[in-house]
Design a protein around this nucleic acid. Structure first.
Lengths: 116, 116
DNA sequence: TGCGGAGTTGCAGAAATCTTCAAGTGCCTT
DNA sequence: AAGGCACTTGAAGATTTCTGCAACTCCGCA
């Protein structure tokens, strides 16, 4: 009775959550932010994508409430809005491992970097 | 050197994984399958979607390697390919909780069903 | 005040997803 | 072998998401 659209079913909200993570650039951003807040310019330096594109992807994450941003002088900083995100990425990694087992070279890469 | 396309970066595989979960019907299927293997007809009875549409979504999950299927007489059964999927859904639930806090009624619904 | 660096926003064309319809396969029952 | 239930597949139009360009805002500095 309080918020916006009470009729949005829970499973749809969940789907939107996952869909938000379903983009390479957005995944990379989240992985980088796991190490703490970072300015856009840093992300830009590591991700190889156009500035406007990165901004669009950051906006998607912001709208979903997964990251927050604030200005620090001339720079704009981004940070995870909750550390729980790390769990999600970790769980994703585990499934990927299970699924890719003996199904091409990614597995090797996966094992060799407990991070990323 | 073995599998299909070694050049597919890991973070892209991750993004695809999450994107696969980014659909309401697919989320529901996975939630239902957490209780064990089920025939399509059961899923169909609980999900309110056309048979052909459900089939398409099941195919997406199958291609991603998240579920497996096998025939049992006249029925086709589906099952999670790995129990790790439950962790992923649980992690998603946690983030949703964190993100939605004091941001509309879904929170209430979320708390009241540790399942789903 | 005028510049340049740092990001964001609006858009439009391109690409990927969804949804549904029609047709097809498999298996069981009679 | 005929019929019917249980699903899957193929295709096409509708919708959503991506990407890159151009224009714009905000801040710090000369």
């Amino acid at each position: 009775m309080r918020g916006r659209d009470v009729s949005v079913p829970l499973y749809q909200a969940k789907a939107e959550m996952f869909r938000t993570l379903g983009h390479p650039v957005r995944i990379r951003v989240l992985e980088l932010l796991q190490g703490g807040p970072r300015p856009v310019r840093d992300l830009l330096a590591e991700i190889d994508v156009e500035a406007s594109n990165l901004s669009q992807q950051l906006a998607v994450l912001r709208r979903a409430g997964i990251v927050t941003s604030f200005r620090d002088g001339a720079l704009v900083m981004y940070a995870l809005s909750t550390p729980d995100v790390a769990d999600l990425l970790a769980a994703g990694r585990r499934i990927l491992g299970a699924v890719l087992t003996d199904r091409d070279g990614l597995l090797v890469e996966l094992r060799s970097q407990a991070k990323s």
